[in-house]
Write a protein that binds this DNA or RNA. Sequence first.
RNA 1: GUGGAUGUAGUUCAAUGGUAGAGCCCCUGGUUGUGGUCCAGGUUGUUGUGGGUUCGAAUCCCAUCAUCCACCCCA
Length: 425
Amino acid sequence: MNARYHRLKGTRDILLEEAERWRWCEDVWARVLGRYGYGEIRTPIIEPTALFLRSVGEGTDIVDKEMYTFEARDGGESLTLRPEMTASVVRAYLENGLQRQPGTLKFFYMAPMFRHDRPQAGRYRQFHQLGVEALGSDSPVLDAEVIQLAMALFDAVDARGLLVKVNSIGCRACRPAYLDDLKTYLKGRLADIPESLQGRIETNPLRLYDAKDDQMQAVLGGFRPITEALCEACREHHAIVLDTLARLEVPVQADPTLVRGLDYYTRTTFEITAGSERKQSSVAGGGRYDHLVEQCGGPSTPAVGFSIGIERTLLHLGDDVIDPQLSRQPAVDVYVACRGRAAEQHGLQLADLLRGFCRVEVDTTGRALKTQVKSAVARRARLMLTVGPEEIETDTVQVKNLDSGDQAAVARGHLLTAVREVLEG
RNA sequence: GUGGAUGUAGUUCAAUGGUAGAGCCCCUGGUUGUGGUCCAGGUUGUUGUGGGUUCGAAUCCCAUCAUCCACCCCA
C-alpha cells in the first residue's frame, strides 16, 4: 500500500515456496520431455513485430489488440514482446540452419509470454507457457504422440480430470472451398447472427465456431462442420490421429466445432480443458502447422506442437495461491546466533567452515537471543550455534541440538566433527 | 474494449456524520545468554488519490486510480 512502486497490471511476483513449487514442476516436466526426445530452446522474449503479424495472423485477437508493441530507439523498427513462442521457434530453426539437420527436430520451452488483455482469474498479461514444437514430420502418428505427451506432462504433476478435444481444420486443398461455402451460408442467415459477430464472417468465419452465443451456435448447427468437408488426405490423416490415440488409450473427444485462435494451424487442432467450475478452463492448446516454416521463408516443413498454460495448470492443481507473508523461508541445517555485532564476523567464519556439506544461516539481525532461537526453529534447523563475547574469548562455540535441547561448549577446532556427527550420524 | 464488486496498520477486519480501533504478525522486557505458555510494554495509518457537501467526512456526492470477478478472447 505504501510501496512507492507497484507491479504492472496483470503481472505477479512468485517467491519462496511458490517459486519452489514452480521449480518442482519445471524439473518434473523437463525429465518427461527428455524421455520423449525433446531438447530445450530459449529465444529472446522480444522479436520484430512482423514475425507475429505473419505467423499468428492479422485478424486474430492476439495481433489486433493484445500485443506489447513499441518502437526501437534506433531506426524505429517495430518490436514486440512475444505473445506466444511458436513463431520464434520457427525463426530460430531457420536462422540457425537447422532445416539441414536430419530427422525431426523436437524442442521444448518453459517461458514467459505477454498479452495485453484484461486480467482475471487465470489470465495474466505476463504468463508462462510450457511449449513443444516438433519440426520436420507430417506423420499423423506424431500428432498423436504430441497429444499423448501433453497428457503425460499433466499426469506427471498430478493434474487430473482433463478433457482433450481433437479436430481437423483441413489444409490448403480443402479449407478454402469450405470457407467460401460457409461465408455464403452465413451471409444468407445474416439476420440471425448477432451484430457483434458479423464482422468475423469476412475476416475469420471459422472462428465463429468458438463463439459461445446460443443464437450463433444455432445458425452454425444448420451447416455441415469442416470435418465433413475434408479432402481425402486430410480425412485419412485425421482418422489415423484418432486411431493412434485410441491405441495409446488416450481418451479424447472428437469435436468438429473446435477451431483455434491462430491462423497457422492446418489439419489437427486440439485443446485440453480442466472441467473445473472456474472459468479460464483451457489449460493447453495446439495443433499442426504445416506451412508456417515455408511462410517464414524456409523450405516446406511440416510441424506440430502445443503449449500448456503453467499458471492455469497450477490453478487447476489448486495450489496457485500462496500468501507471501506465510510463505516460509528456506530450511537450513545449522543456524548461527550471534550475540552482539562483534560476533557476526565469527559467525560467518563458522558458517564458511560448514557450508561445504550443509545449509547454514547466520543471524545478522542483532535481535535478542531468544528471538534468534525462535528463528532457528522456524527455519527447521537441527543445530544452533551461538557465538558471543565469551565464546570469542575462549575460542569456543555453543552447540545446541534443537531436537533434544542439549547444549555444550565445543572448541572451534572440533566444531566441524561435532556438527558432522549430529547431522550425518 | 464492456459490465459488476471492493479499497481503513505488514495482514484479517471493526468503527450512527463527532478524538481511527481490535485480533494475528513483528519488536523489547519479565528470564545478566536460549525454543512452548503466560504477563507487561512497543512500532506500524495523509482511511487508495483528488475534489465537493458539512461547523465537522473512513462514513454522503463526483471524479480518478488500483485490485478482484465476469463478458470478450485465450494459455
